[in-house]
Each structure stands twice: as structure tokens, then as C-alpha cells.
Amino acid sequence: MMKAYLSAFRMRWKMELQYRGAVVGGFVCQVFFGLILVSLYRALYAGKPQSLPIESVTTYVWLQQAFFRMILSSDPDLANRIRTGDIAYDLCRPLQLYGYYYARILAQKLLGSLLRAAPMLVFAACLPRGWGLVLPASLPALAVALLGLVLGLLCVCTLENITVGITMRTLDPRGVQAMLNLLMTTLSGNILPLTLFPDSWQKAITLLPYAQLLDAPIRLYSGQYALAQAPRALLVQAVWTVILLGLGLLLWQKNQKRLIVQGG
């Protein structure tokens, strides 16, 4: 039963491997952004040191940049299938369409971010202290951070599948994507680390789904969420994943009833 979805995952994985040039491009671009952000925060700290040590901020920035591909990426392939009507083929497969697309999105995000994260983390670790990446708080912290990263990945795919579901209605992904990407980059901590937001804001923001993607695993990594708090953090991630999965499935079910295949 699962074989078809695994197979779809493998296939998308293979396709992602074809775009090795994009990996280099993405790496260079993310290094550039990372360096700019780090310089910016160093300038800020030079004028007015914050309660949070600069090493934490730079580590946060580099981890965000390393896994940027995981959060900000919409599979152009899927949007295209909807727009051109190739989705007609996917609709007449003996499959759960949501799961089929989920598997493809998962493969794209996983491989896409692994290929970019590996050189990125090495690069950032080589930078001097106060500029680059510091080691995790402890080995157990690294372990729960990895667990959190897996949950974050599962969660971001449910979000993306909702975007795809909305695209099935609007037929053009750009409007929804632009809006959701704005929310995503802001509320996930990609532009400004969530750890630098006022404490009262953080309480609310860290409960939103966007904070579950990368912010939670990064805090687990750096020890801002102590090990004792880890179960709670992971639970919040899991709860959001389940909620978004349910919402997505509901949306897709409704879509299937009203779908009109484009292009005759």
C-alpha cells in the first residue's frame, strides 16, 4: 500500500538530483544572505548589546539559511500540473492524491535542503566565533533538535499541501504563495530571529505553526529550550502537524468534488 507513495518519493528525489546546478546557486545565494544578516546583527550589537549573546544570533541565522530550502519552496511542478490540467492523470490513479503529492513535496524539501545544508553548515562552522555557527548545547540537545527538525519538515509539507489545495481553486499559485511566503519568512524567524522579538510577542509567535518549522528545532539545538522543555516543544510541533494535516485533507476532499480540469 505504501509502496506507491515511497516510489513517488524516490522519483521526486531522483528529479531533484538532476538539478545540481541549482544547489550551487542556492548555496552561494544563502551564504550571501547569511553574511549580510550576520553583519547587520553585529552592527546592531556594537551599538546596543542585547540580552541574547551574539553567538546565539549568528547560529540562528546560519541554521535558518542552511534549511531555507525547506521552508521557502513551492514545487513549481505541482502548480504547473494544476494549471495545465496534467493533474487529470493524477486524478485517475488508484491513490490518495493528498498522500501522493505529500510524498513528492517531502522528497523535494528533504533532498533540496540536505544538499544545501551540508556545505552550508561546514562553511558556517569554519567562520570565527561571533560570526559563525557554534556547536549544539549538548549531545542530547542535538538529538532532540534533529527530532524537532524531522517534525518541522513533516509540518511544513502539510502547510505546502494546503497551498497546493488552494491553488486547485485559484489555479494560479502566485498570489497565495506570495502572501504565505511573507508570513512564512517573517513568522518562522528567517528574516529576524524569533529570539530577538520582545518576550511577550515570542510567547504568542512560538505557538503559531510557522514557529514549528525551524525555530523550535534551532532553540532545541542551542539550548534555549532546555532539555526539560523539549517534550513540550515537540508536542506543539506534532499537534500542529496533525491539525494542518486534517485541514489539508478536508480541503482536498472538498476540492475533488468541485474540481474542473483545465484545458478541455
Binding site: 509502496k3 487529470a88 492523470y89
Partner: peptide, 27 residues
Amino acid sequence: VVFGQRSQLWWDVPVIDSFSLLKDIYR
């Protein structure tokens, strides 16, 4: 089903790979 103006095979991968995906989908 064959839709003459659409494509079910994957654009960037060898034909045979698309076939083995279909094999798994239809078990």
C-alpha cells in the same frame, strides 16, 4: 487513460523510471 495533450510521464527522468513508478502505483 491517454490524454493526447497532457503528459503522465516525468519530464526530467528516464522513461523507464516513470514506468516503474506506474508499476508501483498500480501494484
